[in-house]
Design a protein around this nucleic acid. Structure first.
Lengths: 297, 297
DNA sequence: CTCATTGTTTAGTATTATTTAACAATAAGA
DNA sequence: TCTTATTGTTAAATAATACTAAACAATGAG
């Protein structure tokens, strides 16, 4: 028994003053309205309407019920409209999880654009390279660089980032520029432990994936830290393009063997569910993907 | 789709923190809870809960919906309890319709007892000898003296009143006491036009109904008026016992042929419906019936 | 790694909602 | 006064849905 249906029927009858008119208003039959009123009266154990075949009169209890029932139905409509508006407007908080370096270098300018366009959007960005459980930590959305583990989470591909093998001019002056990736086994390297394969770097040559074990002198769980290490001139680094972009532009680092390595790693936007995404999430996602395509060409 | 059911399930989940616990609380299966939540989210087009098989988290929209939905369910419970209380207490108005003389002489003392015992009961008594439509004029209850016309109304028999043929001592002194009802055709009479049969009186002799056409000198639509007419000594009257009771006691009127006439007419309590009577109506009805039995013996 | 427990899905069943049609009651019109 | 049209009610039939049971995939605890 759908109580809200019964209430709706009763309100229509009270306002129209007749079962038939109420049935027309609601697009139902008068028979249904009749059973609805009977059910409601049985449920409430109170007579709401006094009716003969021709005339009808609302009881004092019916009048009191009408007023309050109408308010309750209004409250439900208001609640639902407000909730929909809340989820479809760009007001409120958006919790984002992202890898540290990626967040620092890529995401901050992207988010700056978004918030200046939507001042009421509150963004909370948590940068972390450890594994993050989106659901239990209450994130709305996350960015992941690299291949994804199997998961129940939903991924939306945003594009790719090139992997750059690089060193400083001082390093090249001292060791000379390597002519093949296999020389990395003999040259001092810094290793970003955020990479999946422990102790090895993978390159793509002529669409073939080649694994090389570099000579590792330093390990660190940060792409930016390893780029900065390379800038000292002591080591070669293998970093995502975004983390060394500025240093390459300034000439502080130089890309090595750019024609021999076409490695790319995927960038994904992740959310914990697929349905009824708030527009905060969809707006952020779309804006990030646009931004990423803009800066990676 | 019973929206209140969906809301109830969601509230249980939000409070218990798990679908299974919510299902146990409501005595339903977890499968049902799962579909309820999905339906509610589809209905609202908003994600309320973020859930994996093991952990669950309420969204900010879900939290807001929970608080307001809970209030709405509370409002419904409160409304229903209040309505039931309202109809079961003796507070409020009771509109009664009754014949004029009956109301003036019988009902007023009866109602006086009732209101002094229930000070919060407001009684509105409308006395009227014309036909009254209980429903369209909004009466809760009516009293009818005499046989009832066929009707959709509900009648509860309260007892009977004797019909008394009577005249004043002066009348008897002048005309002598009649020895048979058939003499009424020759003696001057006052006729109460509230009687059903126009121009004739019916008597009950040895369980046989006898119709007599009296010699009518005055017609009036009031039993009390016809009794007062008889008290002048000019005419014989035929009245319900309650309307001449006081005059008989004082000796102002004398009952004629009491052993030859056993006519009684029924007294009924009438209401426009049978179900969900307010306790105002049932209390009044019971009190009147008790009172009537007390005064008629 | 196993096991128990979670939420989801599907198919089947039970229940309810709704309509259709026949009905009794009654106000309006002839 | 009689007929007609319209009212609310009822019963039976059907459409819709609520609910369950069972099998499932995912995952945290031991």
């Amino acid at each position: 028994m759908d109580k809200l249906n019964l209430m709706t029927s009763f309100i229509a009858v009270a306002e129209e003053g007749s079962f038939t008119a109420a049935a027309n208003r609601l697009g139902k039959t008068k028979a249904l309205i009749s059973t609805h009123i009977s059910q409601l009266e049985d449920l409430l154990k109170v007579r709401l309407l006094i009716r003969s075949t021709r005339s009808m009169q609302i009881t004092s209890e019916g009048q009191s019920y009408y007023e309050q029932a109408k308010k309750i139905l209004d409250d439900i409509v208001t609640l639902e409209a407000q909730l929909l508006h809340e989820s479809q407007s760009l007001v409120g908080r958006l919790r984002i999880s992202a890898p540290t370096t990626f967040g620092e270098l890529v995401l901050m300018p992207c988010i700056a654009e978004l918030t200046s366009a939507n001042p009421e959007l509150e963004i909370e960005l948590l940068l972390n390279d450890r594994f993050v459980d989106l659901i239990s930590e209450g994130f709305d959305v996350a960015l992941r660089v690299g291949n994804l583990a199997d998961s129940s989470l939903i991924a939306r591909p945003a594009g790719f980032t090139k992997m750059i093998l690089c060193a400083s001019p001082e390093f090249i002056e001292h060791y000379g520029e390597p002519e093949s990736i296999h020389q990395l086994a003999d040259l001092p390297c810094v290793f970003d432990t955020n990479h999946r394969q422990a102790g090895s770097w993978s390159f793509t040559q002529d669409k073939q994936i080649v694994e090389v074990k570099p000579y590792i002198t330093v390990r660190v769980n940060s792409a930016l830290a390893s780029a900065n290490m390379a800038r000292t001139g002591r080591v070669i680094a293998y970093c995502p393009e975004f983390s060394v972009h500025a240093m390459l532009e300034k000439g502080e680092l130089i890309s090595l063997l750019p024609h021999e390595n076409k490695s790319q790693i995927p960038v994904n936007v992740i959310y914990p569910h697929r349905q009824h995404l708030s527009s905060r999430v969809t707006t952020f996602t779309q804006h990030f993907i646009d931004y990423w395509h803009r800066i990676t060409g």
